Computed example of a mutant assay.
Amino acid sequence: MRHTLALTAAAAALAGLGATAFAAAPAPTPAAERAHPAPRPLAGLRILLSNDDSMQAARANNSDGLGLYELRRAMCAAGADVVVMAPWQVQSGKGTAVTNGGVLTAQRRTALPAGYEADCADAPSGGAVFGVCLGEGGCAPDSPSATPADTVKLALRGGLAAKAGWKGAPDLVLTGINSGPNIAASVNDSGTVGAAVAAIDQEVPAIAFSSSGDESRLSFPRGNYRAHAEFGARLVAGLRERGLLTSAFALKVDYPDVSAGRAAKAPVWTRVGDGAVAYHAYERRGSGDAFDIVLGLCEGGESEGECAESRKDADSTWLLGKGHVTIAPITWDRTYGTPVEAARELKAVRRYVEREAPRP
């Protein structure tokens, strides 16, 4: 069974289009922790961070970039040098779209969301955050935005050198954390995944992170983002330690909803599902030329139509149905039947995920 919902504020929130209340600034670090600082397994690693939710983090339902700041926080805490270049406005659903002409402006954000100001204070780049808009003369509140893929391409093709002084490519591109999972058919539309694909297309390793929300409240709790970000930092550290950060394929990491006290289950190596969890539908207005864009939501148990899932190792099944963290490899090569050129790397990463990866 499936049904459609008009893209009202509630449905838009569920789709990741919806807004960020901020918690108070973190409590001061105890003296004991200052005397014995936590290990920094990502020290020396340069990370470009982008997303498709923007860098605004201003909406009450946390759907416009709060996950990006949680990911930035966790990576800097682990010792990485992080620079953010993200879309100026929400760009959910843009996939791998790029802008073919005009001007891009990368404008630094100086007043960061409350509680996140000092997260990267001791990093070489200071955790600089840039929003990328279209047009000259600075980015205004209503400026049109660059796409997720635009931001990564700009960063790798001169933006990081000009704005952060980096020589050469970053060691890793991270995208997200997205407000809502990117699973099954939604992966084709995902700007979070599209930005990661833009990175591996330039031979830079990339990981795309997406978190489930609280469906009962149509929101994306900070706790989900934080749990995912901290897991992500440990995952990246493990991959780095084993020499498994590769540009042969990107990794897509989806995290279940843990806001009600449920614990996320161990990571599972999956494929992208061949069914749908959500889809676009179009409802005609009377007999005229206009059609309302509506969000179709699949309910569990469908055995027919576009909602049906046939793969036992589908990301949607293991994430939504069983509560596991899901990890799937994503490639830029859309040629059907292409042999796996990095078979040894793929096998090694899969083995790490299945046997050695950190537990939530």
Rank of each mutant, 00 (worst) to 15 (best):
R334T: 14
A86P: 03
R73W: 07
G65T: 10
E70G: 00
G273F: 01
A111V: 15
A60M: 06
W88T: 09
G243W: 03
T317H: 07
P113R: 06
A343T: 10
A77Y: 07
T246A: 03
P170M: 03
G213T: 14
I177A: 04
A12R: 12
P358V: 13
R351P: 00
V294K: 05
P124G: 05
L346F: 08
A12W: 00
G65Q: 06
E283A: 11
G95N: 03
S92I: 15
G138D: 07
S216Y: 10
V197H: 01
A118S: 15
A111S: 08
G126T: 13
V103C: 00
P358F: 09
L71R: 02
A162F: 06
T338A: 14
V90A: 01
G296L: 07
V82E: 06
A106Q: 05
L134G: 01
L251R: 02
L172V: 09
G138Q: 07
S259Q: 07
T246H: 09
A111N: 08
D189S: 13
A9F: 00
A264N: 02
V152N: 02
L134F: 00
E304Y: 01
S212P: 00
R271D: 12
E136D: 10
L45S: 03
N100Q: 13
Y282C: 00
A348Q: 08
K312C: 05
D189R: 09
A237M: 07
S190M: 06
H324I: 13
T4R: 00
F22H: 15
I200R: 08
P181A: 11
I200M: 06
N188K: 14
P144V: 14
H324P: 06
R108Y: 03
N224L: 03
G115K: 05
A263G: 04
T338G: 03
A161F: 04
D171P: 04
P256V: 06
I330W: 05
G323A: 04
P41Q: 04
S247A: 15
I200E: 08
C298V: 13
L14D: 14
T110G: 00
E70C: 10
V83Y: 02
S310M: 03
Q107E: 14
L244E: 12
A13H: 02
D52Y: 10
S212H: 12
V84P: 02
K94L: 08
V325E: 07
E356G: 08
S92T: 15
A11N: 14
E117D: 15
V132N: 01
Y336W: 10
L42V: 10
D171C: 04
E354A: 12
A233V: 07
E241V: 13
G301S: 11
N178A: 14
Y116L: 08
C139I: 10
A206R: 07
S219D: 12
G321C: 02
D52F: 04
A31N: 02
A184S: 11
A140P: 02
A13D: 11
C307P: 12
